[in-house]
Design a protein around this nucleic acid. Sequence first.
DNA 1: AGGTTATATAACCAGACAGCAAAGTACAAT
DNA 2: ATTGTACTTTGCTGTCTGGTTATATAACCT
Lengths: 118, 118
Amino acid sequence: MSSDDSLSRAFAALADPTRRAILERLAAGEAGVVELARTSALTQPAITKHLKVLERAHLISRIRDRQRRPARLRREGLLPVDDWLRRANSEWSDRLDRLEAHLTTESDITTTGENPNA
Amino acid sequence: MSSDDSLSRAFAALADPTRRAILERLAAGEAGVVELARTSALTQPAITKHLKVLERAHLISRIRDRQRRPARLRREGLLPVDDWLRRANSEWSDRLDRLEAHLTTESDITTTGENPNA
DNA sequence: AGGTTATATAACCAGACAGCAAAGTACAAT
DNA sequence: ATTGTACTTTGCTGTCTGGTTATATAACCT
């Protein structure tokens, strides 16, 4: 179903090792397509495609420098991801602790709230 | 190139809204396949597939409860993601600040160490 | 203008992915 | 033993993704 929201796009963009490598190289400063291609065993069009994915995920932006079109990191793209992760971390641990307590107690299993009858 | 490492798998798993919804529901307690299917507009085999993806990403584990096979959250699966995010956050801001300084100063570009000639 | 460099686009291919319906397995209960 | 419930597996779709080569555009530099 073509994961459309921006959070999905960010996660999807980060799911590729090539793309993460690009981002990490970009953390050392902006870089153009050919430069990125030179150190990546991929062809230049492939890099262009990856950059497009990263751009749609708002993780980079392209700027103009003469005939070059270097990519630059955009930290805001990381914010939704960061946010989701933070929420998940807190909620998951909460619930798991509670569940642990339940398992040791082992009294009744009404926690799910989805157990109308049998 | 079939993103094989566990970090990629985690990111890829999180890139799907359906999967994130499953995780969030699971934060409220373990749930079986039919229960998850009942509230998701997807068929039950689809849910099974999603659960498999989440399992391979170590984000959930399946347990046995009579004929049920409920899924349970696994917090460890989130750790690599968390880690990568933390590193990215610190490095990106560092470098970007430095880059900003550079752009305003505009003296020389030796920071990248990647500019042998032209 | 003509050549070089940087990048983008097009056309194509293979494989993965998300969905479905239908059939199969496993356990429980009657 | 038969039925029912929970779940998995198995085709079968169409779409998305990541890669390629080949070609086009764009900017710069003689």
